[in-house]
């Protein structure tokens, strides 16, 4: 299975929704503490190594990337200096970034593109706000400020164009409707900071939250008093969680215990796979939308792994 070595510490990896062999990686120097960042666009070659299509340097660490759903060459990067940058792969690096939205006053930790309406994206920042942007405007459309602590992640509902969820360090996950002035639902999901959330792709009422308390909880927003499932198995804080685009109950998570885990929250023994190929914190993971079972992960060991579920990521 192919491996790509990035010069900086990996922070996030995302598969392209257009091409099954492209993926974007966000990296930051010195573990994101201090220094530059770089966005890599990687290309998988069949039975070969991963090649780099393009790389964009930034003045500050890049903590997250997402692909535009409306144009196959657009990539959005969340930067440590509070800016959200747009890159166009079809243009040379000297012309990039084509946009840089600077409104957040703190690091932007997550970006997510709307997959339903395909014209807007969210950025979640440590200044406690989530901002809604459209590609054609220079300023954010609106700002969601209710969280009392850093917002670590924001995720669009995959079936509803106006609904999204945000995960914050104030131990709540909030569900928002972009047409409402405030959040429509507050989910006190964990007793510790929540680092990530994601929606079930096949059931638009199911949401998963990953927290510092080492657990992943699955919630039904119609009955949010008790979680549907509590998935224990990580040894440290869970950094990211993603639902599978192909199977309703499968999801993947990565954690500071350096492992990537596959889960099926419907079955009794929820942990269905564990990969310990990273030698440092695993902080980025994604599942391909176009190829079933294709996984990618990155971590602070500066390696990007792409492998098929069930295989050994380190196998040559």
């Amino acid at each position: 299975m192919p491996v790509f070595k990035t010069p900086f510490n990996g922070y996030s990896v995302k598969f392209s929704p257009f091409y099954e062999n492209q993926l974007a990686v966000a990296t930051a120097q010195n573990f994101g503490i201090l220094g530059n960042g770089r966005v890599h666009i990687l290309q998988l070659t069949p039975n070969g190594p991963i090649s780099e299509l393009a790389a964009f340097d930034t003045a500050d660490g890049v903590y997250d990337v997402c692909w535009s759903e409306a144009h196959d060459s657009l990539v959005i990067a969340a930067s440590g200096d509070g800016s959200v940058k747009l890159y166009d792969l079809s243009l040379p690096p000297t012309n990039n970034p084509i946009r840089s939205f600077k409104e957040h006053t703190r690091e932007v930790h997550s970006v997510d593109y709307n997959t339903v309406r395909k014209d807007s994206f969210l950025s979640a920042s440590w200044d406690d706000t989530v901002k809604l942007w459209t590609v054609d405007r220079n300023a954010s459309v609106r700002t969601f400020k209710e969280h009392a602590y850093c917002v670590y992640s924001a995720a669009w509902n995959p079936r509803h164009a106006d609904i999204f969820a945000s995960a914050s360090g104030d131990c709540t996950t909030r569900i928002w409707d972009v047409r409402e002035p405030g959040s429509t639902m507050i989910l006190p999901a964990h007793d510790f900071e929540i680092l990530a959330c994601d929606w079930n792709k096949y059931d638009d009422c199911i949401i998963a939250t990953a927290s510092v308390d080492k657990s992943i909880k699955v919630w039904d927003v119609r009955n949010y008093r008790v979680p549907i499932a509590v998935l224990n198995g990580h040894g440290y804080a869970v950094r990211k969680v993603r639902f599978s685009p192909h199977r309703a109950s499968a999801m993947v998570s990565c954690s500071y215990d350096m492992t990537v885990c596959m889960w099926d929250y419907m079955v009794e023994d929820a942990l269905i796979g564990r990969y310990d190929h990273h030698t440092e914190f695993a902080v980025g993971v994604d599942m391909s939308v176009l190829v079933e079972g294709l996984l990618a992960s990155t971590g602070w060991d500066e390696l990007v792994y792409v492998w098929q579920h069930g295989m050994d990521p380190r196998a040559p």
């Binding site: 409104e103 014209d119 459209t134 954010s140 459309v141 609106r142 400020k145 972009v178 409402e180 002035p181």
Partner: peptide, 18 residues
């Protein structure tokens, strides 16, 4: 579009810096 929907709802506040 998203920007139209948000503006129609009256919650749009473009470029707000917190």
């Amino acid at each position: 579009s998203t920007s139209d929907v948000v503006e129609a709802s009256g919650t749009a506040r473009p470029g707000e810096i917190v």
